[in-house]
């Protein structure tokens, strides 16, 4: 009986100590890890879209609650004016879900650029949506109205040859992102004032 009690006590104490330590460490490092993930996973796409901005878009970010989740928005300053935001959206590709970053100019409601962040598309085919700048460049300057579609469906975007599913997915993700943007615009404009 005594031995049993000892086993229970030792295991309980050890487990709770370990749990407490790890929880504390997790709290400590949470912000740092989030920054690192942003920097290395989403950072390249964000910086590419906001090339030439005078601030650090990853440091200048804010969050808005959308339904149950919080969405991060990255602010880009050009000529001293904070009028562009970049945010993430997801789409369905050939190999599963992928993430895109969409940059929007709030002043004239035009797309300033897009970039694919994480994906599991076929290397060399669907992955060109991320690596081929010509595909992403087509979205640049398009007004934020209506749906985005590939040309074979009567839209405005040339699909990547051999990667129609991926291209449609990107167009769909941009469409979703634009819807999010339109519904959040008043809040966005309010938040952006804080960065001037």
């Amino acid at each position: 009986m005594r031995e049993m009690l000892k086993m229970i006590i030792v295991l309980t104490v050890l487990c709770s100590f370990s749990g407490g330590l790890l929880a504390a460490l997790r709290n400590e490092t949470m912000e740092k890890i989030e920054n690192q993930q942003l920097e290395f996973v989403k950072g390249p796409a964000i910086r590419n879209i906001l090339k030439g901005s005078s601030n650090d878009p990853i440091a200048d970010r804010f969050k808005i609650k959308v339904g149950e989740t919080e969405k991060s928005f990255f602010v880009g300053k050009f000529d001293g004016k904070a009028e562009t935001v970049v945010f993430e959206s997801t789409g369905k590709g050939f190999g599963g879900d992928f993430g895109i970053m969409l940059g929007v100019n709030v002043a004239d409601d035009k797309i300033i650029g897009i970039g694919v962040t994480t994906h599991s598309e076929t290397p060399g085919i669907g992955s060109r949506a991320q690596t081929d700048p010509r595909f992403a460049a087509q979205f640049k300057g398009l007004p934020l109205a209506g749906d985005f579609k590939v040309k074979s469906e009567g839209g405005q975007v040339d699909a990547i040859s051999g990667a129609t599913v991926t291209s449609k997915g990107v167009a769909g993700a941009v469409t979703d992102a634009v819807k999010t943007y339109v519904s959040l615009k008043p809040q966005l404009a309010e938040k952006l004032k804080g960065f001037k």
């Binding site: 295991l11 050890l14 487990c15 370990s18 790890l22 460490l25 997790r26 490092t29 690192q36």
Partner: peptide, 22 residues
């Protein structure tokens, strides 16, 4: 007990690596 101890240290390493050498 050994597994708890080892797992704790491994998780510490994992968190620190994520935070500093991503």
């Amino acid at each position: 007990c050994f597994i708890i101890v080892v797992a704790t240290f491994v998780t510490v390493v994992e968190l620190l690596m994520q935070a500093y050498t991503y």
